Amino acid sequence: MEGKHKVILTDRKYLLVEGVRHVESFDDNEITLDTTMGFLTLKGEGLHITQLDLQKGNLTAEGFFASFLFQEDKGRGRVKGKNVLKRLLK
């Protein structure tokens, strides 16, 4: 599964993500995922996960998707916005 990553959004309502490792957090306005290509934060309204299969790395969700934010995985590079003090004490 490493390296395989796909995001398909249809009509800003239906989402399929392949390459999901873990769901970090979710609520009606935001879903945060750890994927094979780093962290992915999905923002919108009325968001809900309709299907999740971590063995295959697939997630489907519905709602109104307003934005996607990709961040590098901590193991692969620097995460933007990371606390400066944490970086210095690492």
Rank of each mutant, 00 (worst) to 15 (best):
H5M: 05
L52W: 01
T41A: 12
D34G: 05
G63A: 06
R76S: 15
N58P: 09
K4S: 10
Q51G: 15
L40M: 03
V20R: 00
L88I: 09
R78I: 10
F70H: 14
Y14F: 14
E72R: 09
H5G: 06
F65L: 08
D28W: 02
N58Y: 09
A61D: 05
I31E: 01
V20W: 00
V17L: 04
L52T: 05
E24S: 08
L42R: 01
L33S: 02
E2H: 07
S25D: 10
T60D: 14
V79D: 06
R76F: 11
H48R: 14
L52C: 11
K13T: 05
R21A: 12
K86I: 08
I31C: 03
R76W: 06
H5D: 06
M37C: 11
T10L: 13
L42W: 00
L40G: 02
L54T: 05
D53G: 07
N58S: 14
L69W: 05
R12P: 10
V23S: 04
E24G: 03
D28E: 14
S67F: 03
V84E: 15
A66M: 13
T36L: 06
E24N: 10
R87D: 15
G46S: 03
H48K: 13
L59S: 04
I49K: 04
F70T: 08
F65M: 08
V17M: 03
S67E: 14
A66P: 05
L85G: 07
M1W: 03
H48S: 13
G75H: 12
H5K: 05
L89R: 09
R12Y: 09
L54W: 04
R12A: 15
A61Y: 01
G75K: 14
N83P: 04
F68E: 08
R12H: 14
D34Q: 08
L33N: 01
L42E: 03
E62H: 06
V79I: 13
G63D: 03
L42Y: 01
E30C: 11
E30K: 12
K82Y: 11
K4V: 07
G57K: 00
H48T: 07
L47Y: 00
Y14G: 13
E62V: 09
T60C: 13
V23K: 03
A61I: 02
